[in-house]
Design a protein around this nucleic acid. Structure first.
Lengths: 140, 140
DNA sequence: ACTTTGTCTATTAATTAAGTAGGCAAATAT
DNA sequence: ATATTTGCCTACTTAATTAATAGACAAAGT
C-alpha cells in the first residue's frame, strides 16, 4: 500500500499539472483544495523540489510549480521518492536493494522469481503513467 | 513490501511443501531451520491452519503439515492472508476495498487506472506462483 | 498420570508513519 | 530601509502498525 505521504504527493502534483505554466501556486491553496495538512504538505513539496520535479518561488505571489512537463513526471519516480522501493521484497529491488534477512541463500531462493516478475510488470505499467496521462483520465 | 510475518509464512510453507506427505513437522524444527522466532511462527501457522492451508496434529509426534497439494497453494492467498490487500490503493483492491480518504471523487479520479493495471498484472503473476513452483525453482 | 505439542488470549517492545511547532531566509512591496 | 509574505529547515510529538513474548489451557499419545 502507498503511504498517505505518497498519495498526498500524487494529488498535489496532479493539482499542479492541471495548472502547468500558470505561475506559482501557494502551498495553502493546494493544502485546502486537496485537504492535506499544510505542514505535512510543506515537507512533501520540499522533497519534490529537491528532486527537481518542482520549483518554488519565495515571497509574495510565491508558491510551487511544475519544473518539468507533466508527461515527463511518471508514477515510478514519485513513488520511489516518497515510499522507497516498489518491489515487494528488498532483495529484488532495483533501486533499494537489500538482502532479505530471513533468506538463507539468495542464489538458490525459489521465492524471488515471482517477485522479480511482479516488479517488472509493475514498473512497465507505472512507467507509462505520468501526470499528463492522469490529468487526461480525470476529464473523462 | 511484504511484512516479516508474510515472508516467514512463505518460508515455512515452502519448508512444509518440500516435506509434503512425509508426516507432521514440529514447529520447533521449522523455527530453527528457517530462523523464525518460535512463538511468532506459532501464531502464523495457526492462521494458516484456520485458512485450511495447513493441518495439525497434537501430542507426541505432532506438528504441522500441508493440507492441500503444493501446486494448489499460491502466493496470492498467502499474501492476502498475512498482509491483506495486494493492491497499492485501497480503492482498487478486489478483496479489501475501501474508499481512499484523500480522494475527492472516485468516479472521476485519474489516478486509479494505473493502479488497477498494476493490480491485475500482479495478480496474474502471483496466481501462477505456487508452492510447487517455488520448490522446483529452488532446486536449479 | 505424565509428557509432548498445538491453541489461544493478552501484553509488551520496536519501528515506522503521520502530523506539528517554531525560527530562519529569501523575495517582494511600500 | 523595513515590514510582510512565503518557502526552508530542524526538531519534536503522537499515533498506528508490526514484531515478538508470556503464560495458561487443551488435546493426544505413552
Amino acid at each position: 500500500m502507498l503511504s498517505k505521504k505518497c498519495k498526498y504527493a500524487i494529488h498535489a502534483l496532479v493539482y499542479l499539472a492541471e495548472r502547468y505554466q500558470k505561475g506559482p501556486i501557494h502551498i495553502q491553496e493546494i493544502a485546502e483544495k486537496q485537504r492535506i495538512p499544510k505542514k505535512f504538505l510543506e515537507a512533501i513539496l520540499l522533497e519534490l523540489r529537491n528532486a527537481k520535479i518542482l520549483h518554488s518561488k519565495k515571497g509574495k505571489g510565491g508558491g510551487y510549480y511544475l519544473y518539468r512537463r507533466p508527461e515527463d513526471v511518471n508514477l515510478i519516480e514519485i513513488i520511489r521518492l516518497m515510499d522507497g522501493a516498489i518491489a515487494m521484497l528488498p532483495c529484488v529491488s532495483l533501486n533499494y536493494y537489500e538482502p532479505c534477512e530471513e533468506c538463507i541463500d539468495e542464489k538458490t531462493c525459489g521465492i524471488r522469481n515471482a517477485f522479480i516478475s511482479v516488479r517488472d510488470e509493475t514498473l512497465k505499467v507505472l512507467k507509462n503513467s505520468n501526470l499528463a496521462q492522469i490529468v487526461a483520465d480525470q476529464k473523462k
